[in-house]
Design a protein around this nucleic acid. Structure first.
Length: 630
RNA sequence: GGGGCUGUAGCUCAGCCGGAUAGAGCGACGGUUUCCUAAACCGUAGGUCGUGGGUUCGAGUCCCGCCAGCCCCGCCA
């Protein structure tokens, strides 16, 4: 609670970088001529240092010797030996690693000194960041504030219910935002809701005729009815030319600020907003709504700017920008339409306006340095087009990053797009309800089998936490690029790469902590303390293989976070946490903690504490809260 | 027609800058509980990495062709 500021801990990433420099320098000393030549061509000799592929190979392996075999016309093992000779002569290297081993065709295997690992681990005890540096602290001292990152996700449509199609964007986007926030970036979580455009013309026109009260009185009809009205409106729009014309006029009125249309629109938005919020609350997701309508005042400026930049072409009545490197059927370049023949703007215009606004400096912009769009993979070509036009228009600042984070479809167990039995779209609310219900039924069955008695509050809390966690984790743990098969049975399974398995690992640590006396309480996690007040042994002492395996796994956390921050793949974090749980469960199974003698007991409790902290923090970054008991 | 994504064990999926004998989980089969929650752990079986070329000391990974599935392609979002 009363954590003092401490010097930034030395994360494993820095050790890795140090080591890479040491090996590179050893290679240069061993082969100065080759190094000089490499300098001319492509830079330095590459040590090709990577994390060891198997535990028996140590912590890292340098593969650089193999690549030198050909240019040097020497056997790779001989090259490896020359590099190793230089390494052992380097005291800085010796401080980090045990003597290197040459293996296989010429791999150089490196093992970090155990006392270094133990010290690194102890450094993380009581550190709420677990060794992960914050860019806010790092750049704050230099006087340069960190640049905002926009994460654009979820984005449901007004007057429609959130359905399974919004699940992945919402969950993945939230996770990425959490990771970026944890790293210290100011994150703008933007909900680019569909609150503008043709569909409102349709809906308002239809409602004026069939349910006018919905347009003047708040909540006169509920959202379910609204969805039905929307469907009817769409059908009429597609079938009836006169209706279509009226709907288009309605859009013009709305966009022109007609008070009646405007009022109707606001009521529809407010009602949808409340419905969305219920789901966001359940999922514990925070979002700032900034819908398409927000950019309405900027649309004309976008088109004018494109015109001024010489990019705009009028083709068949529509104003568009022809894309470079994208050709259609007849080999002609494809256009991105920004203004329809009738003068109306479309989503591409809105997306361009949003992009420009987000990169633009305040006060008339967000001043973002990175924009991340979390939408389904089907929109890949649309975003590629928008990004290209934005770059050509000069709206992307120097170093500005523009990333589409695509994801695959949610499919049913039949491999087709997920539908209800009656063939309807699955509502997000129903999906979450069922997950919680199934988790509850599971829990009750187990309680009966084991003769346990728990309160209704406990059961409901565990069922809710496990159910929601299972849905989120199942989504995040699959590589987002591929379609993913939704299965309640699999995601709620108690074994395997699932939320319940991870949550249970944490519960086991809770069990140790409850019976572990004073130091056990410290192992329970949550409380911060200074290095001086650290109740665990100094140094930590490990002897068992399972202890070292767990220690090494724990120390990889910072590298995993860095990878997710960069590559925006939440499944990397899931895989890591699953492996951590597995390693912990092996440790728990094979190494007694509370019955051990000091200093093994305290050292093992320290491992428990760090395992709990890492799981809790990692799951938290996935948007998943944890349990003490289950 | 053009473009994108995908294809790895019976099923669901990992596989990071190209590196050692391709990994998990489920399912199957077999084992483990006087001990911190067995919602766990250990073991066995299971693979022409869609396919054919190429590059490389080395290819599931990079390049080209082909096959299959899904998705996108001018005034919807």
């Amino acid at each position: 609670m009363n954590a003092q500021p401490r010097p930034p801990p030395s994360p494993m990433l820095r050790i890795f970088e140090d080591l890479k420099a040491r090996v590179a320098s050893a290679m240069e000393r061993a082969y100065p001529a080759a190094a000089a030549e490499a300098l001319l061509r492509s830079g330095r000799l590459d040590p090709q240092l990577v994390v060891a592929s198997k535990p028996e190979f140590g912590d890292f392996q340098a593969n650089g010797a193999l690549a030198l075999a050909k240019p040097l016309s020497q056997p790779p093992r001989q090259i490896a030996a020359a590099i190793v000779a230089q390494l052992v002569a380097d005291p800085a290297f010796g401080a980090l690693c045990e003597p290197p081993q040459i293996a296989g065709p010429g791999f150089v295997n490196l093992t970090l000194r155990p006392e270094l690992l133990a010290a690194e681990l102890r450094e993380r005890l009581g550190d709420p960041r677990l060794g992960v540096p914050s860019v806010a602290l790092a750049t704050g001292s230099a006087g340069k504030p960190p640049v905002p990152v926009v994460v654009d996700f979820s984005s449901p449509n007004i007057a429609k219910e959130m359905h399974v199609g919004h699940l992945r964007s919402t969950i993945i986007g939230d996770c990425l935002a959490r990771v970026l926030e944890f790293r210290g970036h100011p994150v703008l979580r933007l909900n680019h809701v569909g609150d503008w455009g043709t569909q409102f013309g349709m809906l308002i026109t239809h409602l004026k005729q069939v349910a006018p009260e919905a347009l003047t009185t708040a909540d006169a009809v509920d959202l379910g009815d609204l969805v039905a009205f929307y469907r009817q409106a769409k059908a009429r729009f597609d079938a009836d030319g006169a209706f279509q014309a009226t709907a288009r006029e309605e859009v013009v009125k709305l966009q022109g600020g007609d008070p009646v249309s405007r009022r109707a629109w606001q009521l529809l938005c407010a009602q949808s907003r409340r419905e969305f919020q219920q789901l966001y609350d359940r999922l514990d997701i925070r979002l700032s709504e900034r819908g398409e309508s927000f950019y309405n005042p900027y649309l004309e400026g976008v088109v004018d700017d494109l015109d001024a930049a010489g990019l705009l072409v009028t083709d068949a009545g529509a104003r568009c920008v022809f894309l470079e490197g994208v050709s259609g059927k007849d080999g002609q370049p494809l256009p991105l339409i920004v203004q329809k023949g009738d003068g109306g703007f479309i989503y591409a215009t809105t997306d361009l306006a949003a992009l420009r606004y987000r990169f633009a400096p305040p006060p008339n912009g967000d001043g973002a340095g990175r924009i991340i769009y979390v939408t389904d993979a089907g929109q890949a070509s649309h975003f590629a087009a928008v990004f290209q036009v934005a770059r050509r228009a000069g709206w992307v600042p120097e170093g500005g990053r523009l990333e589409h984070v695509p994801f695959g479809l949610v499919q049913g167990e039949d491999g087709k797009k997920l539908k209800t039995r009656s063939g309807d779209t699955v509502r997000l609310k129903d999906l979450l309800d069922e997950a919680v219900e199934r988790a509850g039924a599971d829990l009750r069955r187990r309680l009966t089998e084991e003769g346990r008695h728990e309160t209704e509050d406990f059961i409901s809390h565990v069922a809710t936490t496990v159910g929601i966690a299972a849905v989120k984790y199942a989504d995040l743990s699959a590589n987002r690029n591929t379609n993913y098969q939704f299965s309640f049975d699999r995601m709620l399974a108690l074994q395997g790469n699932t939320a319940p398995y991870l949550l249970y690992a944490l519960v086991r640590i809770g069990g140790i902590a409850r019976r572990g006396g004073e130091m056990g309480a410290a192992a329970a996690a949550g409380e911060s303390f200074t290095s001086e007040a650290c109740p665990f042994p100094d140094p930590l002492q490990f002897i068992e293989a399972q202890e070292w395996a767990l220690a090494r796994q724990l120390l990889q956390f910072d590298a995993v976070i860095a990878s997710v921050e960069e590559e925006l793949l939440p499944n990397r974090l899931c895989t890591y946490l699953f492996e951590l749980s597995q390693v912990f469960n092996r440790f728990y199974d094979q190494v007694p903690v509370l019955k051990a003698e000091e200093p093994a007991r305290g050292s093992r409790l320290a491992l428990c504490r760090l395992s709990a902290d890492t799981l809790r923090l990692g799951l938290g970054l996935l948007g998943i809260p944890t349990l003490e008991r289950m």
